[in-house]
Amino acid sequence: MLKMEDLKGVIPPIITPVDDQENVDEKGLRAVIEHVLAGGVHGVFVMGSNGEFYAMDEENQRRAVAITVDAVGGRVPVYAGIGAITTKAAIRAAQSFEELGADALTVLTPMFIKPNEEEMYGHFAAIAASTALPILIYNNPGKTTNNISVKLLERLAHIDNIVGIKNTSMDFAQTVEYLRVTREIPNFKVLSGIDYYIYATLAYGGSGCVAGTANVAPALVTEIYEKFMAGDHAGALEAQMRLIPLRNTYDYGSFPVVMKDCLNVMGIPVGSPVRPITSCTPERLEALRNVLADLNLLPKEEA
């Protein structure tokens, strides 16, 4: 189980390699895990949005979590993602992932439906009560259309095993407000979910990031955090600026294909995205190759 002092740093929402039948590819998943761990990340988040959780049935989700727990082998905490619409389905996943050995859960707000604040509070409170694992709330209003308000977060943060929030919102003022209202709550952590805002979140007292770009450039993303924590704020900001061109590639294709395409270009075979999403066009793949070349991330024979 996650120790609170270990909820920090760079936590990549790892992509999920799939085979020709769009089932989890174990060899590919283990390769991705070793790649990000070699880059110095502080945790691994399986079944997030970059991991195409929405495309995986329960069997594939369980398999991905089990493989990740085994592959990580306790080197860093494993966060297992839950993106269920109903409370019942989320509780079933929470208990399943706890049995599989996950260290923490990352629970997304429901999508499609539009719960009010009391319903949303009841949803997260019931999930928290169903498991002994720590829970990191995942706020992504751009994708789910449901937003965790500052007032709601302040209430949820008082539930013992709700230990933090990942804010994937372009509204940075909301992240600042999350930090302000939880400052006095012991051990509650706020993490950036937008890769543009890693440095800024740390500057306001945040604990780290869940960064999709850390699938591709884990060492660079980790550099932002490590330099900031060492007091080298200028170095951390420089690393943040070097990361931005990679983050800017997200719109080169339909989300979440770009990080997957990047890994394939880098020589880490991870398969195709799950349809209906398809890979970037040849022109966009060439543009991706140029960005990766600038970051020295291409195989040596191509660089």
Score class of each variant (00 low, 15 high):
171 D>T: 04
78 V>T: 13
303 A>C: 12
294 D>F: 03
140 N>Q: 12
228 F>T: 10
179 L>W: 04
225 Y>M: 09
75 R>H: 03
24 V>H: 06
246 L>Q: 03
114 K>L: 12
71 A>I: 07
239 A>N: 00
271 G>N: 09
14 I>K: 07
79 Y>W: 09
32 V>S: 09
3 K>A: 11
258 V>I: 13
177 E>V: 04
286 E>H: 11
291 V>G: 01
101 G>W: 01
110 P>F: 08
247 R>S: 03
258 V>A: 02
72 V>Q: 05
96 S>T: 15
43 G>E: 04
130 S>Y: 08
201 T>P: 01
140 N>Y: 15
294 D>A: 15
75 R>Q: 11
259 M>H: 05
1 M>Q: 12
18 V>Y: 03
256 P>F: 08
165 I>G: 00
159 I>T: 06
226 E>G: 01
242 R>F: 03
239 A>T: 03
108 L>C: 13
171 D>E: 06
9 G>W: 06
214 A>R: 03
205 G>A: 02
84 A>R: 14
281 T>A: 05
198 I>K: 06
302 E>F: 02
182 T>V: 10
60 N>Y: 01
113 I>C: 12
244 I>E: 05
4 M>L: 14
112 F>W: 07
76 V>T: 09
165 I>A: 00
129 A>R: 14
3 K>M: 12
2 L>E: 02
270 V>A: 11
181 V>G: 08
110 P>V: 10
9 G>V: 12
303 A>Y: 01
138 Y>M: 08
280 C>W: 00
29 L>R: 08
163 V>P: 02
265 V>H: 00
251 D>F: 07
271 G>F: 05
208 G>F: 00
48 G>S: 06
67 I>F: 00
184 E>N: 12
93 A>K: 09
207 S>G: 07
172 F>V: 12
99 E>W: 05
158 H>Q: 11
138 Y>E: 04
245 P>W: 04
173 A>D: 04
263 L>V: 02
12 P>D: 10
244 I>F: 11
18 V>A: 03
167 N>V: 14
25 D>R: 01
240 Q>M: 09
179 L>N: 03
285 L>E: 04
244 I>T: 14
266 M>W: 03
199 Y>T: 01
104 A>I: 04
295 L>K: 12
114 K>W: 02
287 A>S: 09
168 T>Y: 02
201 T>Q: 05
82 I>V: 12
180 R>K: 14
7 L>D: 01
51 G>I: 07
277 I>M: 10
295 L>P: 10
75 R>Y: 00
208 G>T: 09
252 Y>H: 08
77 P>A: 13
225 Y>D: 06
13 P>T: 09
248 N>I: 10
232 D>T: 12
178 Y>P: 06
106 T>Y: 07
20 D>S: 10
154 E>Y: 00
92 R>D: 13
179 L>M: 13
46 V>L: 08
30 R>C: 13
108 L>T: 15
39 G>Q: 03
29 L>M: 14
56 M>Q: 14
178 Y>D: 06
10 V>M: 11
242 R>K: 15
55 A>H: 07
145 T>W: 02
12 P>Q: 12
57 D>G: 12
204 Y>I: 08
57 D>M: 12
71 A>N: 03
169 S>A: 11
13 P>G: 08
186 P>E: 13
151 K>T: 14
82 I>K: 07
185 I>Y: 01
54 Y>F: 15
